[in-house]
Each structure stands twice: as C-alpha cells, then as structure tokens.
Nucleic acid binder design. Sequence first.
DNA 1: AATGAATGAGTTTTCATTCAT
DNA 2: TATGAATGAAAACTCATTCAT
Lengths: 209, 209, 209, 209
Amino acid sequence: MSDGRSERAQAKREETRRRILDAAETVFAEHGYHDTGVAQLVDAAGVARGTFYQYFDSKHAIFLELLDDLLRRFRASVVGVDVAAGSGTVRDQLVETVARVLRAAATRRPLARIIFREAVGLDADVDDRLQAFETELYRYVHGALTLGKSLGWLRDHDPEVVATLVYGGLRQLIDRRIVRGDDGPDALERVAAATVDHHLRGLLREEDA
Amino acid sequence: MSDGRSERAQAKREETRRRILDAAETVFAEHGYHDTGVAQLVDAAGVARGTFYQYFDSKHAIFLELLDDLLRRFRASVVGVDVAAGSGTVRDQLVETVARVLRAAATRRPLARIIFREAVGLDADVDDRLQAFETELYRYVHGALTLGKSLGWLRDHDPEVVATLVYGGLRQLIDRRIVRGDDGPDALERVAAATVDHHLRGLLREEDA
Amino acid sequence: MSDGRSERAQAKREETRRRILDAAETVFAEHGYHDTGVAQLVDAAGVARGTFYQYFDSKHAIFLELLDDLLRRFRASVVGVDVAAGSGTVRDQLVETVARVLRAAATRRPLARIIFREAVGLDADVDDRLQAFETELYRYVHGALTLGKSLGWLRDHDPEVVATLVYGGLRQLIDRRIVRGDDGPDALERVAAATVDHHLRGLLREEDA
Amino acid sequence: MSDGRSERAQAKREETRRRILDAAETVFAEHGYHDTGVAQLVDAAGVARGTFYQYFDSKHAIFLELLDDLLRRFRASVVGVDVAAGSGTVRDQLVETVARVLRAAATRRPLARIIFREAVGLDADVDDRLQAFETELYRYVHGALTLGKSLGWLRDHDPEVVATLVYGGLRQLIDRRIVRGDDGPDALERVAAATVDHHLRGLLREEDA
DNA sequence: AATGAATGAGTTTTCATTCAT
DNA sequence: TATGAATGAAAACTCATTCAT
C-alpha cells in the first residue's frame, strides 16, 4: 500500500489530532478540567464524539497529553538558551531570561493558565508532570546560581531555598500579572528587571553590590 | 425563646455544625474538592445525608465556608502580631514572622493543603477568597516594607513586584516543603532565616548590608 | 435509633430490592441479557435509574444475583425431596421426580428461560454458576443411580456418561417443550413417564425388565 | 463478461470472502458474538473495515452466514451416511454414527462451541437456524427409530420425547466433554458406545435385549 | 474494489440534592 | 430536627456502520 493512500491518511490523522488538541487547549484554559466536558471538546474541535475517542483514551488522557505538550513548549522557549552565550552584563542577561519566561507565558495565556491554575491539585499523574517541570526550572536556576558562584559573583546561600523562592516568585508573577491581569508586553520588561534586581542584590556579594 | 431548651438546642446545633466542618476539613484536604463526595462528608461527620443539607446549602457552600474558616485562622496566626512589638533586630523579627507563617502551615497541613492546592483554579467564588487572602498578606508585607523604607532601612524598590515575589516565594515554600514534603519543625527556622536573608540583602541599602 | 425508624427503612429497602429483582426476572427472560438495558429494568421496576444503582453494582451484578436466586429456587423445588421417602414403585417415584422438575420449569417459565437460554455462553461468572448447578443435579441423579445399583435394580453402566445423558435430556425437554413450546401441565406427566421409561429400560437389569 | 479478468476477480472475491469467514469462525468461537467486535474480525482477516462491509451486510449477517456454513458442514459429516449401508450389527453402526457426531464436534471445536454455546439465546434469526438444525437431527434419529421399529427391533415408544432425549443427550455430551472438556479421541469411542448402549437397552424389545 | 477516518446514537454509571417519614 | 431512600440530569465512553478518497 505504498500508493500514497496511507500517507495521506496519516497526514489527515495528524491534522485531526492537532485540531482536537488545539481546541482542548482553549477550552481547558477557559473552563478548567472539571468544568470541561468531552461534549465541549468535540464541539470546539468540530469532530464527532467518537472521533475524539479514536485519538485519545479519555478526557484525562488528552489533558495529560496536552499538559506534556504545553510544558514542552514552555521549556523550549525558556531553557535551551545558553546563559553565557548572550552579550551584555550578567544582570542584563538574567533580565532577558526572566523576560523571556514572562513573554512565553504572556503570548500563550491559555498555556500558562492550564499549567499554573487548572493543573494544580488535580491528581497524581498531573502532579508528577508539574513536579518534573518545576524540577527542571529549578535546575536551570541552580545552574545559573552555581555558575555565578563559581565565578565569584554570588555570595554564599542555600540553593534549595533560593531556587524555591525564585521559582515561586516567577510562578506568582505569571499567575497575577499574566493569567489574571493584563500587563502589557512593555510592563513585562520592567517587571523582569525589578525581579532580577530584587533577587540579585541578595545574591551578589556585598562588595560587588 | 431564651429558655434553657432553646439554648441547649442552639448549642447542640452549633456542635453538629462544627463536627461536620471539622470532618470536611480532613476529607477535603485528603481528596480535594472534586474527589470528595457528600457521602464521604456525612460518613466522616457521622450524620445522615439529610442532616448535612440542614446545615449547609450544598457541597460548594460548605467548602466556601470551610475556606473562610481556614483563611481566618491562618490570618490570625500570621498577621495580628505587631511587627514592631517584639524585641530583637528587625531581621530577627522578620525571621520570626516568616517562621510563624511556616509553622502555622506546618501544624495544620490539611489547612495549607486546601488553601494552596485544592482551592486553586476551582471557581470564581473560591478565587475571590484566595485573592482577598493574598491581598491581605500583600498588604502586611507592604506595610512592613513601607515601615522599613520610611525608617531608611530599605532601598528603593517596586513594592507591587516585590510583594508578589515574597508572597510567591512563601507560597512555594509551603507547597514544597510542608504540603508535599516533611520538613521537621527545626528545619522551618533555618528556612525562615534563609528566606529573610535572601529577600533582605536585596532590600537593604548597600551600605547597611 | 431503635425507634422503629430504621426497621421500617430496612423493610422498605428489602421491598424495593425485591421489586427490582422481580422486574428484572421478567425483562431478562423476555429480551435476554444483551438486549436488556438498565433503562428497561428501571422502567419495569418503576424506580429511578439511580435507585437501581443503590441496590446493584451493575447490570451484570443484578443478573448474577438473579441467576443465583433462580437456581436456588429451582434446586429447592427439585432436590431436597427424599427419593426413597415416597410410596409407590421406584419407577413411579422417578416419574414424579421428573414431573416435579418439569413442573418447576413450567410454572416459572421466565426462570427456565433465563437459566437454559439467556445465561448460556454469557461469561465466566455465569458459567461457573451454571456449571455448579449442573453438577448438583448430576450428583442428584448419580445418587439415585448408585442407590438403585446397590439395591441391585440397575445394570452396570458408566455413571458419568449416563448422568450427562439424563441431564441433557431433561434440559432439552425443558427447552423445547416448556421454554419454546406450550405443553399443558397434563402433557408434562406423560412426558415425564416417557422419559423415565426410556432411561429405565436401559438401566434396569434385563431379568427385571 | 466471462473473460479472464472477471474470472480472476471473481476468484479473488471468493477468496477474500472465505478469509473473512474463516477468521470470523475463530474469533466468534473464542469470544462469542457479543464480545466480538468488527474490529477484531477485520484484524483477524487482515482486511480493512470497509472491505468487510462490502462482503457482509452487518456483523449479524456474517454470524448468520457462518452459522449456516457450520451447520451445513456438521450435517454433512453426520447425516448423509446411509444407516443401513454399513456392515456390522445395528448397534455397531449406531455407535459409529454417534462417534462420527462426536468426532465432527471434536475435530472442529470452534464450530461446536459456536453452535452449542455462543448461538444459544442470541435472537430469533439464529434461533430459527438452530431449530431447523435440531429438527433435521431429530428426523435423522426418527428415521433410524422408525426403521428399527418397522423391522421389529425396537419396542414401542414416544418418538417425540425420545428424539428430544437423544438429541439433548448428545448436545450435552458435546458441551461438557468436547467444548468444555478435553476428552481424547479414544475416549470418544467409549462414550459413543456407552451412549448407544444406554439408549438402546431402553429401546430394544425385552426379548431382544 | 479497497481503504480507514469519521460518525453519533446509544449505553452504562455517578452523585448532588430532595423529601416523605 | 434527623433520617436515608429515592431521584434524574448529566457525564464518560463504545462500536456498528458509512463514505470520501
């Protein structure tokens, strides 16, 4: 059957799958997991009930897959950029990194809403994903801290606690200013700078400050 | 009307009400709002289904009431203590305050679990409560910041952002170290100190640091 | 709560349970397991959908319970009667026994229909019940054969095979003449006699025949 | 029209049809009608869903056709052999006939399983087929009985009842010893003999016995 | 003729809430 | 006032069948 028939079918499958997933992102973001029914998902995707179940085992399964998807995208736009690669001062690089995180959340509000609000306290599976995500971000922060410390830029500190504070602060910023609020993109730069400055002054060795 | 009979009845009513609320705290904390059925609530409280509905309008209503209850208690053990009243350095007072917050969460894990995990992203009503709670804590932090600033102890900063970072950091600490983890009470003091130090070094004027 | 309230509740429960079970007997007998929906069961019983599930875990569960019920009743009206107790010749006693079996089936056609038609090949659970039932009847037959043999009335034979033939013959009689057909009660006596005679002549020693 | 092309196409059609039917026999025998999905049928046959519906109108239709097929084969290996044609005593010929029936069932267990377990109590259509099958076997038995009676070998009896007993006995033997059990082929001969002997001693006139 | 993605009616099951006792 | 049996709307999920390619 290499007459291209199965290839086209494959492509169609992929497209339908994407359509359902995309629709799900919007609907879950708007109503949350529990207040979203499969009915709304298929309505939004423009497919029949049965079609949905050809692609996903359950409502829970598509949520998990969507979450993986979103976390992957989020990570891609945050991590994966060499901290030391950019030009400018360390502080400016950090500001740009934080700004990148905030921008990633701002340009895809549904994504952020799902990750930071709708997926909290859902169940063990979801928790595992989120935990892994946090750990990854933590490591990223930790990497930066370690680098700065080894270069003698940062004073001594408990990285476990500080990483938690940094992550928690970012999380809260996204939750309040982006998911709930309507900060414009220009505000983000300012917030990013304020954030970095707040944390940095506490991390830089006094004589550097 | 105010005879002994109605007084006793009144007292009994109040007691039953309390029993149901207490049971609800445990059950909601363990299973979350959606995975808790009215059946579990009445079983845990040891009352009949119908009795439950004589005290509370709905499952949603009791959750809201419980949440109010918990938030009230949390506030009481955190705020309501004069920052300037204690003795010792400002830093030590702040450490004690943060430690008090963490302790409040640690000694009542179910409470913290409900506030920070199960009630997130539930619905508009719950969101309002949480928002009000955060605002209150924010004001508390803000008050301290303002005081410190007016006394010349703290450098200039964006209080909106910093308050968000501080709150977010605490929230995350509670979530990771208390709700999920099992930090002992002694660890809390250490974490509180690290937290305050982290934030303070960034807030204190350089010459004070 | 020994004010009689719970007793009446208990009684009500029992009655509702019976009503559902009775309705189920009729409906399952008429349409079979697969063509019967829970909708039909609750309609026939005159209860709400939810009520059904307060008493039975699933459609499958009520079928199993019903089957147990029917098999119990069937056994009660067949076995449990001392073969040697009656008066008359052995042949007459056997005729009466077979007649009793046929009558038990004839007076409760839905019962017979479910046991011998609707429950065949359903699933492992049901199969186990039926197998146990057959085994019980087999033992009953076997007991009679052994008795007769020990008394010197019956010639030598393979009881495994003969019991299977006897059971299979009865099963088929019930299936054809009772479940499907409309033999009157008088016909049953005649059929019972013919059945016993057929089997007996083959089992009796030649000199007795 | 009758060119080589259409002939080959015709042959191919026939072959595909056969492949689907053969696969269906296996699958239906293993899982039963209701627990077999069209998905399993097409998977086992190695054709697409749509192809299946080009050959058969419905799942029900293919089951009916398969049943006809199986019943035809079963009859062919049972009936269609002249009772009087063989050599040996009547008793030996009967034993051979019963053995043939049992062997037919034993060598094609799926067939027997479908006929005697999965097709029972399915629906009216299926019931008709089975009834016709039973009637046919009944006539075969009846023919033999009549022959034997006219030749003065058999005593007087109610053929309706006896035919039912004989058929029911065979059915049960097949069900227990072949479909469920694992009697070896040698056991079949012994069982066939025991079966015939049991029935015969009851049918033969006393003086012949 | 063959394919397999799409369909949607139909099924089972849940659970917050009501109400007669 | 307390009880707990009854309710039924709503949810998730299945699967035989269709039809565009």
